[in-house]
Design a protein around this nucleic acid. Structure first.
Length: 644
RNA sequence: GCGGCUGUAGCUCAGUGGAUAGAGCAUCUGUCUUCGGAACAGAGGGUCGGGGGUUCGAAUCCCUCCAGCCGCGCCA
């Protein structure tokens, strides 16, 4: 809020210089930043350095001009030109303290003030977690849940409309789900589970909770067991403060018959066909296309070594009914064509994706933008998803002015118009769908990587992590209280680091040495504030904003920090760096502790000063609650240490 | 081979092209007859993996090399 105001003041001053003809137009926008050294002032700008060349003036001369134009004694205590041309601003205490009242007016929705500065709010569909209903949510998926749910909150606070979506991979054609069902069936019938089958305790739990009469089919087991797993996933995610607006079933697409229909439409457009070949791209440095390799499928007809693909754009009935249907995803930037329909006639997962994405774009409250959050093992999936959306977007073109195909392009495209249509569709796809990959988390237990693979019978579920941390931190509390604190610690651990970087999650640290966890540092600040406010109330003192009494450096630093929350939210919404909000929470807590140490709040002999400082406490508490709410952690009013 | 990520203090990690690179933990020294000490003040600790380049200015952008993790199925 302060940054926004200062940026505007600076920009107005520059605009005035331009309209007076003292500076040329077309200069870069002014930006306000933190000075490297606080001794330089409260804020700084590098405008004179950046604009020096286009303005045709040397940086210091330009800085001097701007300094004079922006001067306002009620706002700036001093403005100095320093070094090569930085402009350092020192704000008056009155100006900073004056922000206390508007900050209080934002209440616990302070983070949402970021929405007012959003020039182009969007309707965004965010899909995350989306694992198979064949096991509990693992600690690996926990990162996706923590990151995804917080990103949604941040995007919302930044003024967008967000739809949270979970895609249930429950297709009857799924080989993994079939194997899961067969594993459960075997356990129920007292047989050993199949090779490579599912062996974890939770499989036994599913088997035990099924009531069977004997003779049930694998289909029945699949339906029953995945329904049970789904229910458990829903519950576990709720405990982990992760909720969804829509749980979308893959199978429902097949039930409506639209998967087969939609892929036929792709075939009609030339985005898919049944020729028994597959294109594979040979890519050089920087993914530059070097060559197109053609992989011949079994059953392809070859004469004299020369391939003659039968011209069958549509999967006709009768003979050839079971021919493989290919998505020609190489036309849309993917590195190889993908199978939509297998040789045995069953549809693949990616076929469902075609119908799923079409559905997402065509709902009544249609999303303008899709964000799909995937785990690190799915990074090869990005090109495929963009190809799927591009194939849907593609509109055949008859443009005859297009440049002729190069030799390489001729291997991929039917005509110049085909190439242009595909490339335009891919560009639209990349605008409308953003795939965000979060990186690997390695869980360390007793100094070694903890096993967490899905089929080794030793799954580490997110709910186990939450429960374990909760039991250690609050051994005497109720289950619900333990789960809350376990959730807080686990979420904060996940969220402290950028989603885009690999990190080690030290389970022993989270479980045993939780005192050292920064989440307690930030929550403690909140509890301390609540305690102070309660104590003040006992002395008959309540909050009353009075900026004229606020002038201590620690008070002013705290106000500046509080006012930065909407700015941090806007930044995080832009680049998805939601981890900075965890860092912000720590910095805000620290600023409060510094203030608390330097400025005594409750002083009955100075009631007006006390009331003013209490109002600063309230503003801090509101800001903490606001950022905690984004992070999905609780704001305890008291924290009583337990020993065990 | 192609792609993604990583390399910053003893450890775990922040860092928006900007000025003398930061925090927590750990180590050491202090504050405190407390509005909650899960706090605060201070100290030591660095060839930002190596080398080139762009720039007035690079931990940050580009190239290259080294080291490590991960992914590239008619699985999902």
């Amino acid at each position: 809020m302060i940054r926004h105001d200062l940026t505007q003041r600076l920009q107005h001053a520059i605009d005035a210089l331009v309209s007076e003809g003292r500076l040329p137009s077309g200069l870069p926008r002014a930006e306000i930043a933190d000075p490297r050294d606080p001794a330089h002032g409260d804020f700084a700008t590098n405008f004179a350095l950046v604009a020096s060349k286009p303005a045709g003036k040397n940086p210091r001369e330009l800085a001097e001009m701007v300094r004079e134009a922006v001067t306002d004694a009620s706002v700036f205590e001093s403005i100095d030109v320093a070094g090569p041309g930085f402009i350092n601003f020192r704000l008056t205490p009155g100006y900073i303290a004056g922000w206390l009242t508007p900050l209080l007016a934002e209440g616990e929705q302070l983070a949402h003030a970021a929405g007012r500065d959003n020039p182009s709010p969007k309707r965004i569909n965010v899909e995350f977690v989306s694992v198979n209903p064949n096991g509990p949510i693992t600690i690996g998926s926990g990162r996706g849940a923590a990151f995804g749910s917080t990103l949604c909150s941040v995007l919302e606070a930044a003024g967008n409309t967000v739809h949270r979506e979970y895609y249930i991979n429950d297709g009857v054609n799924s080989e993994q789900m079939r194997l899961f069902a067969e594993s459960v069936k075997a356990l129920v019938e007292g047989r050993p589970v199949p090779d490579n089958g599912y062996k974890g305790d939770y499989v036994q739990e599913v088997a035990s909770s099924l009531t069977t009469a004997g003779g049930e089919t694998v289909d029945w087991f699949q339906q029953q067991s995945q329904a049970l797993m789904l229910k458990r996933q829903h519950t576990d995610l709720s405990v982990f403060a992760t909720e969804f607006d829509t749980w979308f079933s893959e199978q429902s697409l097949h039930d409506r018959g639209i998967v087969a229909q939609d892929i036929d439409e792709l075939a009609a457009k030339g985005a898919a066909d049944t020729r028994p070949i597959r294109n594979k791209l040979k890519l050089g440095k920087g993914s530059v296309l070097e060559d197109v390799e053609i992989e011949t499928q079994a059953g392809a007809t070859e004469d004299d070594g020369e391939l003659t693909p039968p011209p069958s754009p549509l999967p006709a009935s009768g003979e050839g009914e079971n021919a493989t249907l290919w998505l020609r995803s190489t036309k849309f930037g993917d590195d190889q064509d993908r199978v939509l329909k297998r040789q045995d006639g069953r549809l693949t997962y990616i076929a469902s994706d075609v119908a799923y994405h079409k559905d997402k774009f065509n709902r009544p409250a249609d999303a303008e933008k899709l964000i799909t959050i995937l785990g690190p093992d799915h990074h090869g999936y990005i090109g495929r998803l963009h190809a799927v959306v591009a194939a849907l977007e593609m509109a055949p073109s008859n443009n005859s002015d297009a440049a002729p195909l190069t030799e390489l392009e001729a291997k991929l495209y039917d005509s110049p118009a085909d190439r242009d249509a595909c490339q335009a569709a891919l560009a639209r796809s990349k605008e409308k769908l953003e795939v965000v990959i979060f990186q690997l988390v390695r869980f360390m237990k007793e100094g070694k990587p903890a096993p967490m693979r899905k089929r080794d019978g030793n799954i580490y579920a997110i709910i186990d992590l939450v429960d374990e941390i909760g039991r250690t931190v609050k051994p005497n509390a109720s289950k619900a209280e333990q789960q809350e604190v376990g959730k807080d610690v686990a979420r904060f651990f996940y969220l402290m680091r950028s989603h885009d970087t690999t990190f080690d999650f030290d389970l022993d640290l989270a479980e045993r040495q939780s005192d050292e966890n920064p989440v307690f540092y930030v929550q403690y600040a909140h509890a301390r504030i609540c305690s102070v406010i309660a104590k003040a109330a006992e002395a008959g003192l309540t909050a009353e904003s009075n900026p004229s009494l606020i002038d201590h450096p620690k008070e002013l630093a705290l106000i500046k920090m509080i006012a930065d929350l909407p700015y941090e939210v806007s930044r995080a919404a832009e680049d998805y760096g939601v981890h900075r909000l965890a860092t912000y929470a720590i910095d805000l807590a620290r600023a409060y502790h510094h203030f608390y140490d330097a400025c005594r709040v409750i002083q009955p002999e100075h009631p007006e000063l006390s009331r003013a400082r209490i109002s600063l406490c309230v503003a801090t508490r509101n800001a903490l609650r606001s950022v905690f709410s984004l992070l999905g952690i609780s704001a305890p009013e008291r924290m009583d240490r337990e020993t065990n």
